[in-house]
């Protein structure tokens, strides 16, 4: 299962792709539990005052939502990393390995 906390730790690692290679953009995703797409436009900057409701929402978004199927696209080189059965495929072809 790709929880959003894990997605937040993955960067593109194609040879030479070293800037603007994070966060990978989601495309065609299936979420579990079912949520609206808007949740995937989350930002990493947090407000200074974190109230309990916000923390509960953050916990839910980062730890309880899984991406089961979909694609993650590098914002820089546009490399596609598929997610299938909750497993991100971050393998590269020989010529792409740095």
């Amino acid at each position: 299962m790709v929880r959003l906390i894990t997605h937040n730790l993955l960067a593109c690692h194609v040879k030479g792709c070293t800037s603007n290679n994070f966060p990978l953009e989601f495309k065609d995703v299936q979420l579990v539990p079912h949520e609206s797409w808007g949740i995937l436009r989350y930002r990493t900057k947090l407000p200074r005052c974190l109230d309990d409701d916000f923390l509960k929402t953050l916990h839910h978004v980062l730890l309880e939502i899984h991406v089961e199927e979909g694609i993650m696209i590098c914002p820089n080189c546009k490399h596609n990393y598929p997610i299938s059965n909750g497993i991100p495929n971050m393998l590269l072809a020989e010529h792409e390995i740095g």
Partner: peptide, 15 residues
Amino acid sequence: EPINTSLAHPLLARL
């Protein structure tokens, strides 16, 4: 949380 990759390559930038 399994990630199909060699060693830790896609995690190095963030971890």
